[in-house]
Amino acid sequence: MRKIMIATILSSGMLFAGSGAALAAAPDWGKVPVKKITLLYPGVSPMEWILKGTEHGGAKAYKKAETCASCHDTEAADMGKKMASGEKIEPKPIKGKAPFIPVNVQAANDGSNLYLRFTWKQPPGGGPKMDAANPVKLAFMLDDNKVERSSQAGCWETCHNDARTMPDAKDDKKTKYIAGGNASSKFYDLIQWKSKEKAVDGYVADKRVMEGGKGLVEAKGEKKGDEWTVTFTRKLAGGGEGDVNLAAGKTYSFGFAIHDDHTNGRFHHVSLGYTLGIDAQADINAAKR
């Protein structure tokens, strides 16, 4: 009986943190405000490109502390179209690649846990199956405003032109990283749900580490018709390696990405950088419920 229960948990994409951990009750999502965020296909746009004024017109404004979202929030869909088609900064366009994905984001807390919910319609696909095991993955990253420029660009600060799957990559094992990052003070908290495999609770510092976190209580996803819903329950006080400890009244840098249509590496859809507040005014406010 115990083996059957474990198999059911894993096949549904759920993860329980800790032996015998009690699962918290999710909020009434019908009463939680919705933030609509458009994810865009980013092409080859690492931080090096963003900071290069001869190629990125917004580099000057960015260097004066403007945020990516303040300039591009309403342009994300159009930007995605240019990159997915190969018109701009995409040397290897994928036929049928969705240029953007509109996502409804909701957040709440109960004093002990953060709850996040993402819903979106499955876009058309047809590209190569880079990750044959997982049709869809969704990851989010948090930073306690300690990573340089994370408050402007969200998780883009982990994207560099020498990482694997980038055209200039020389090391096929080099993943996302932060220049000068370390797991004790300068890192992004990373949590990823996978449609067919166990969820991940890790971090990005001088390299991406897909383990070590102790904050994730549950990650689950389901598809009804053409709509996906993915929810996370995460302890406010993570307590593990690479965990950002969340507190009421504070805001955090926040970004998320969807690997759609069996994609891997840079061939995902990503959000611009936003803020997540725990009972605090932010782009996304996880108010106590």
Rank of each mutant, 00 (worst) to 15 (best):
2 R>L: 10
3 K>M: 05
3 K>G: 07
6 I>R: 08
6 I>N: 09
10 L>V: 04
16 F>P: 05
16 F>Q: 05
18 G>Q: 05
18 G>D: 06
18 G>Y: 12
21 A>C: 09
26 A>E: 13
27 P>W: 13
28 D>M: 02
28 D>H: 06
29 W>M: 06
30 G>C: 07
31 K>M: 12
35 K>F: 11
41 Y>E: 05
41 Y>K: 01
43 G>A: 08
43 G>I: 01
43 G>K: 08
45 S>H: 02
47 M>D: 04
48 E>D: 11
53 G>L: 00
54 T>Q: 11
55 E>R: 12
56 H>N: 15
60 K>P: 01
61 A>K: 15
63 K>E: 10
66 E>T: 10
70 S>I: 04
71 C>R: 09
71 C>I: 12
72 H>W: 11
73 D>H: 09
74 T>R: 08
81 K>T: 07
86 G>F: 01
89 I>A: 11
90 E>Q: 15
90 E>Y: 05
93 P>S: 15
94 I>C: 10
95 K>N: 13
100 F>C: 03
108 A>P: 04
109 N>G: 06
112 S>E: 14
115 Y>G: 07
122 Q>M: 04
124 P>Y: 01
126 G>P: 02
126 G>H: 05
126 G>S: 07
127 G>P: 01
136 V>P: 05
137 K>T: 07
141 M>D: 13
142 L>Q: 04
145 N>G: 12
148 E>Y: 08
149 R>C: 08
150 S>V: 12
151 S>E: 15
153 A>I: 04
159 C>W: 12
161 N>Y: 11
161 N>V: 06
161 N>H: 14
162 D>P: 07
165 T>A: 11
167 P>I: 03
168 D>A: 12
168 D>N: 14
171 D>N: 15
173 K>T: 13
174 K>E: 09
175 T>I: 03
179 A>K: 12
180 G>Y: 02
181 G>S: 06
181 G>C: 09
183 A>E: 14
184 S>N: 14
184 S>K: 15
186 K>V: 15
186 K>T: 12
190 L>H: 13
190 L>Q: 10
191 I>T: 15
196 K>Y: 03
196 K>Q: 13
197 E>K: 11
199 A>M: 03
200 V>P: 06
201 D>V: 03
202 G>Y: 00
202 G>M: 02
203 Y>S: 10
203 Y>D: 04
204 V>C: 10
208 R>F: 01
210 M>F: 13
211 E>Q: 14
215 G>F: 10
216 L>R: 08
219 A>R: 01
220 K>M: 09
222 E>Y: 03
223 K>W: 03
223 K>G: 05
224 K>G: 07
224 K>A: 14
225 G>I: 01
228 W>S: 08
228 W>P: 11
231 T>R: 08
231 T>E: 15
233 T>Y: 01
233 T>G: 04
243 D>E: 00
245 N>V: 06
248 A>L: 00
255 G>V: 05
258 I>V: 14
261 D>H: 04
265 G>C: 04
265 G>D: 15
266 R>D: 01
267 F>S: 06
268 H>L: 14
268 H>D: 07
268 H>M: 13
269 H>I: 04
270 V>Y: 09
271 S>N: 11
274 Y>V: 07
275 T>S: 15
278 I>E: 11
281 Q>P: 12
283 D>A: 14
284 I>L: 15
287 A>V: 14
287 A>T: 14
